[in-house]
Design a protein around this nucleic acid. Structure first.
Lengths: 134, 134
DNA sequence: CATTTGCCTATCATTTTGATAGGCTTTTAT
DNA sequence: ATAAAAGCCTATCAAAATGATAGGCAAATG
């Protein structure tokens, strides 16, 4: 289940892409448009900046903007950052220890198959596809 | 993320299918084989029975067994019962109120697409496929 | 140099997750 | 009958995740 953090992050990215501006967009404006508390968005946006999906600028005239073209963002990378991992089961998460039963686990191949399906789906889904699909 | 309840339920179903017996299998035995606390399994198994995926019998010689052929169970129905819903986002869960923004939501079509992918994957995956794939 | 904006830290309530435990009831083989 | 084997019901619990809210400090620019 995708949490609000992931979904809000996506909405922020879409919002910024739609502004289609070279200026920095104040978080206050995004929060107002998206109807999400600015304070909560700060947490989310900070992560997006530290993972180089956004650039932030302080001061008057500051705010946030994309640092790539919208078509160069995949939904997958946005969600992966906010959710930590898109893995379906714990033993497939990137930082998990290898499960001791993995060699005999009857369900692991299925989870791996589904995991690939998920990653392929979200990684091939570009931000631009969400904008046109108004 | 699939929780332990869903994963344990699947393991119980696989275990029972593998016994390939017409007798009732005691939960104690399943718990021992699967290395899961019997008490915890009771919770899980109860739900499987009330949703008609298993039949239980009390008394000496009692236990649980499948009530259909293994090929007639889909992984999807097992997970759906244990996880409540396989929906990726809350607004796609079966009992959720329709989101007021759904008509203008830019991400909803994507979630719906992924949801279909997920359901198709797990509903077409049969219990038998997990048994052969040792 | 005041304004606008981001940044950092703390706190919070609620829900979900992952169990454990005790004791009661039901069934049935002997 | 009755003991043994099994399920059933209720309560409780700790820990983590979720979804926020709030205050004040720091930085930058017109």
């Amino acid at each position: 289940m995708i949490s609000t953090k992931g979904r809000y992050a996506l909405r922020v990215m879409i919002d910024l892409a739609e502004q289609n501006s070279d200026n920095f967009i104040p978080l206050k404006d995004i929060a107002a448009r998206q109807n999400i508390s600015k304070k909560y968005l700060e947490i989310i946006v900070k992560e997006l900046v530290s993972n180089h999906l956004l650039v932030g600028a302080s001061g008057k005239g500051g705010g946030y903007k994309l640092c790539r073209a919208p078509e160069d963002y995949s939904v997958g990378e946005i969600l992966e950052i906010m959710e930590g991992s898109l893995a379906t089961v714990a033993c497939l998460a990137k930082d998990s220890d290898k499960c001791p039963n993995s060699s005999s686990c009857k369900t692991l191949p299925m989870w791996a198959e589904y995991d690939k399906l998920t990653h392929d789906f979200f990684n091939s889904k570009k931000l631009t596809e969400l904008i046109e699909k108004k």
